[in-house]
Every structure is written in C-alpha cells, then in structure tokens.
Amino acid sequence: MSRTPEIAAADQPRHAAPPETPEWQGDFTPYVVGDPGRAASRVRPALVADFPDRPDTILDGIVVNGPDGAPSATVRAASVRGLSHRHYARVRQDDYALRVTPDSRYLVVCVADGVSSGDLSHFAALWAAQDGTDELCQRLARNGPDELPWPEFLAWVADRIVERAGHQVEGIGSDPREVAQRMAAALTYAVMDLTGEERAVHLLTVGDTSGWVLGRDGDWRPQQPVKNADVDIHSSAVSALPILSGTPRPVRTSVAPGEALVVMTDGIGDPLGNGSGAVGRFLARSWGDPPADFAFAAQVGFARRSFDDDRTAVAVWPTVTRG
C-alpha cells in the first residue's frame, strides 16, 4: 500500500545530487536459515561484568603469501558469541588463531571451543589457540607435518593450559583434572602447505570441533566422524584439553583450487550436521568464493531456531594461480 508522494517540481531542491552517484551504498540484513526462533529477535545481549574486555565477536580477512612471495591463500575467520551466552551474560568461550611459519611454508590454524561447564574455559580456548599455534610454528621449523610428533605436541598444549592456569587463577592446583573443572577446550589444529597446486593439509582434533573440505560443487566432506550421527538421545559430552584421552591421530587431506578448508566449532558443526541440509547449502553457496570479511562473520552468525551456541569458523581458499 505504498503511495508515491507527488511533489511539485518547484518544491524540489535545486542542487540535489544526481541520482546516479549516491552518497553511500550498502545494506545489511542478518542471515537466517529456516525458522530464526524467538531468541534471534528477543535476546538482549549483555555485557559480562567479570570479563568486560572479552570481545563479543572477532573477525579477520587476510591473504597469505607463499614462500615465493605470491598470494597463496585467502583466509576468512570469525568467532561470534552465541545467543545463549549473550542472553545469560556469559563470555564467548570460542576462539581461533592464525599463524604463518617464518619461512612462509605453512599456514597454521587453530579453532578452539571452551567447554561450557568450566567458568574460565575461554582462557583454555585462548591459550590453546594462541600458544598452541606459536608452538606448532616452532615445531614446523624442525619437522614437516608428516614427521611431527603430534601426541607430544598435544601433551605440550595440555601442560601449557595447566601451567598458565596456575599463574592466572588463585589456588587452582596443578592436577589437569582439577584445572579441567574450571577450564577446558575442544580444538582442531590445521596445517596447510602453502606450496603446490593441491594443498596438503594436516588436521588434528580433540573433541567436537571439526575440519571439512568444501568441494567445488558445494559438497561438504567431513574429515572426522560426524558428531551424534546415530544416537537416540543427543549428548553434549566432549573430550577437551587439558585432559588427554587416547591418542588422537592427525588426518591428512588435501584442498584443491576452487575448494576450501573450513575448520569450525560445534556451534556451526551441529546445525551443519553432515552438510546435506539447508545450513550446508547456505554456507556452501556463501563460501564458494571468499566473501567480504564482515559478510563472513555475519554468515557465521546466521540465525536458526535453537542453535544458540558460540560459533567459530576459519575458512581457507587456496589462491588459484593463473598463467
């Protein structure tokens, strides 16, 4: 029922800008997949009194050069506080970190998900991401990812969390199980070779974070078993550092030009499922090519009813070499 206002020619400003050169452009509409739920519009995000400097959302959009100095990969990363944490005034417990080895040979990524039962788990996520990727870069100077002693590396990360917790948190003790009561994180490390046409990737996961290859045709190829794939009752129990259980083995895969490596927390992994649904189609369509960095963060934060966990994704597109 819109009405076109009839304005007399004499009422129009004399020096109005010609319509073909607007003063600004652009628009933003939040992404919604299916039913957004009530929370998407009704939650009033709260500042967290205990950790007011912990950002609600972080994001990066970078281009990484290979050893030859030419662009080798485009990276988009975003970590977005979930609606539930916004509502209950809790911090974002997800985190990520990006590193390139000094020789520009490898891109190192970590995506970490602080387990919600620990009130300080965002520290475990932060340290696992930042210190873990630093350490991985140092170790990659000595060994290629194929020869890397991965279990030893994970033990180092676990120790690091316990050690830093001891400095940071009064009276926390040095027993990993005790520390894990207050802070623990599920995580995936990814190492991508920045040379060659097909990029070799090593992925190491503890818990319910996950690594995927997004194929040219929008197909999602999980690089680990899909969580809760065949159960009657949904469970949210996870393994997480600093508790080491079993010996996680790295998965070796490769990402071809036109494909993308996507590492994510279960905040996205759960609604993605095995990638065959609406969320899989939405993200595949959005991430066929690198989107604008802010658009990527908004896509990570899509609204879908009942999926209110923190969300983190790091996506890496090998640069297509021409000529």
């Binding site: 039913d35 794939a229 609604p271 993605l272 969320v279």
Partner: peptide
C-alpha cells in the same frame, strides 16, 4: 542425523 533442524528439550 543428517542436518538437525533444531535441538529440543
């Protein structure tokens, strides 16, 4: 579970 529509309690 292919791709869950939501989590219910």
């Amino acid at each position: 579970m292919d791709a869950p529509l939501g989590k219910l309690l």
